[in-house]
Structures are given as structure tokens and as C-alpha cells.
């Protein structure tokens, strides 16, 4: 069963603890997608569109030096089919959009739901070439058999195929506000510095951590009223009222992250983790190494927020 494969993510690391391993999931080694930001026109903080409304979806990215990624992409939006397998469109897509030039300023893709839309979700399928030009013809063939290596023209850039379902507010219960990152602290101090520069960073206002120094605690807080109540299908098949659980994904290209996903719940209202020393022995330049840390907040009901911070690791 699929969930047993997911469970293996927990068990199998125990088996390979003594052998070779892959890069940890929190490690940013190249440009990568990190999440989305969804907004609904004229709906304030609400992120789940009603039928007939317009939804704008901005893809989020990260790369090791913290500079903006230059993406080109294609995507379609459609009604999802009911399946036990991969998501696919129940009928013809009702939106197609593309951004072919990576140097053009990035923009969200836009979909307007039909007035008579009744599905609980809208499905997005797409492909992106980060820091490269997307091959529109190949990338448009999203119906199986797609080879990620062919997405970027001449193989320049980092390709990624994506798919996700976004909830639709077909009733009041599915209306949802996005959470917001209210504050981030590092070692107990408010942490606001973003990665706006590259190169040497010592004395430039970034929090400074000596290479190999002790772990430092990061705490991410949401707004007090971000944990919304809603009704969901309970495990006994009956509707039940529950409270959202928000999780924060933390990514880093250098300093080790204790765990990638940390939860904010009613019982545990903060996301806390440690920024730990690296495992490998790496030489840090005299002027310091600027390390961006990427945060993505999700409420698991279509609400997102994101923030980037930076520290300066000194020799």
C-alpha cells in the first residue's frame, strides 16, 4: 500500500544508517521549487476560490546563494479525475499558460474557475525550467511519458515537473485564509535579515555564526488566529470539527537543519528547530559565507506563506 511506502521513509533510514546516503531533503544544492503562494482576486486573505473567481498561483523557488531563480514554465489547470493513481484531468483543461523567457520577470499563473464548477479541488499540472529556457513543445506534452531531462532547451537549467491540487471553496467550510509568518527568531533574537547580497558577509548586519559552533534555535511563529477551525471527514466517517495544523518547511544550502518539517498546533504553538553545525569539514572564506535559510509555511488547506533569512557563517 502507498502509505507503507511513505512509512518506509521513516524505517529505511535506519537500515541505511551505516551505508551511503542521499542528500538530505532540506539541503538546497541547486535551484528548486519550494512551494506556492495562492491569492484570490478581491478576496483579501482568502486563498480558496469560489466558482467563477480568479485564482493566482505564484511558484516559489530557492537556490544556494539566495538570489532569485529565473524560471520559465508551462502549466494547465483542470478538474481532477477520481483515481487511485496519479492525478490527471477528468476532461479538457480549462486554462493553459506559459512563460517562455526566463529573463522576463516572474509572474503568477492565473486561472478563472467556471461558474458551474462543483469539484472540491482544481488540479494544476506543469513543468518549469529554472535558470533556463523551457521547451514549450515538449513540456506541453504532460500526458505521461514525459522525460524531465528534455524540458530545458539544450539541457540548460534545472527541470522540474509539478502537480498539485488546490482546494476550491464550493461551500463555506472550504473557505480558508492563508497563514502568515508572524516572526522568526534565531537564538532568541528577532531575525529579519534577508539574503540581499552575495559574497563576503562579515560585518554587514547579518547574524554571525562561527563554523562548527553549537546549534542555535530557530523559532517560527504564525499569527495567533491563523489556526482556523473547520469541518473535515473524521476517521470514523463522520464529519468532525477540528483545528488546522500548520507546518513550516525549512531549507538550507549549508548549515545543517535539524528537521525539514516542524508543526504549529494548538498544543504546540511554535515551530522550533535547531540550526546545527555541518557534518563535513568545509573551508569558510575569511570574509564569511552568506547562508540563506528558506521558510515555507503551509496550513494544508491551500494557504501558504514564505520568508527568506540569512546568516553569515564565519571561519
Amino acid at each position: 500500500m502507498i502509505f507503507l511506502r511513505r512509512l518506509s521513509y521513516f524505517l529505511l533510514p535506519l537500515a541505511i544508517a551505516c551505508g551511503p546516503s542521499v542528500d538530505p531533503a532540506w539541503l538546497v544544492v541547486e535551484a528548486r521549487m519550494t512551494g506556492i503562494l495562492a491569492t484570490v482576486d478581491d478576496a483579501g486573505d482568502r486563498v480558496t476560490p469560489r466558482p467563477g473567481e480568479t485564482l493566482r498561483v505564484q511558484l516559489l523557488y530557492a537556490q544556494p546563494d539566495g538570489t532569485p531563480v529565473r524560471p520559465s514554465w508551462v502549466f494547465v489547470a483542470c478538474e481532477p479525475a477520481t483515481t487511485s493513481g496519479f492525478d490527471f484531468c477528468a476532461g479538457e483543461p480549462f486554462t493553459f499558460d506559459a512563460k517562455a523567457d526566463p529573463d522576463e520577470e516572474d509572474r503568477p499563473f492565473t486561472v478563472t474557475l467556471p461558474e458551474d464548477y462543483t469539484n472540491r479541488n482544481v488540479l494544476f499540472l506543469g513543468a518549469v525550467c529554472m535558470n533556463g529556457e523551457i521547451d514549450l513543445a515538449l513540456a506541453s506534452d504532460l500526458a505521461g511519458g514525459l522525460d524531465p531531462d528534455r524540458i530545458c532547451v539544450d539541457g540548460v537549467g534545472v527541470p522540474q515537473i509539478f502537480t498539485f491540487a488546490h482546494p476550491v471553496a464550493i461551500d463555506a467550510n472550504r473557505e480558508n485564509r492563508a497563514p502568515r509568518i508572524a516572526s522568526i527568531t534565531l537564538g532568541g533574537e528577532e531575525w529579519t535579515t534577508e539574503p540581499t547580497t552575495t559574497g563576503p558577509c562579515v560585518g554587514m548586519g547579518y547574524p554571525e555564526l562561527a563554523y562548527g559552533s553549537d546549534p542555535v534555535e530557530i523559532v517560527v511563529r504564525a499569527r495567533e488566529d491563523d489556526l482556523e477551525s473547520y469541518v473535515r471527514l473524521g476517521m470514523n466517517g463522520e464529519p468532525e470539527t477540528t483545528t488546522e495544523e500548520i507546518y513550516v518547511e525549512t531549507l538550507s544550502p549549508f548549515r545543517r537543519i535539524e528537521r525539514r518539517f516542524t508543526f504549529i498546533t494548538v498544543d504546540d504553538p511554535i515551530a522550533d528547530l535547531e540550526l546545527e553545525p555541518n557534518d563535513e569539514d568545509i573551508s569558510v572564506p575569511e570574509g564569511g559565507l552568506l547562508v540563506p535559510i528558506f521558510f515555507v509555511m503551509r496550513d494544508q488547506r491551500g494557504g501558504f506563506d514564505a520568508a527568506n533569512r540569512a546568516v553569515c557563517v564565519t571561519p
Binding site: 519550494t34 511558484l59 522525460d147 531531462d149 515537473i161 502537480t163 515555507v296 491551500g302
Partner: peptide, 10 residues
């Protein structure tokens, strides 16, 4: 040969 990423849940 690769993966299909879901940015909604990571």
C-alpha cells in the same frame, strides 16, 4: 527517471 513535485505539500 525523475520526480513529479507537489509544491502544495513539499
Amino acid at each position: 527517471t525523475g520526480g513529479i513535485y507537489n509544491p502544495a505539500n513539499g
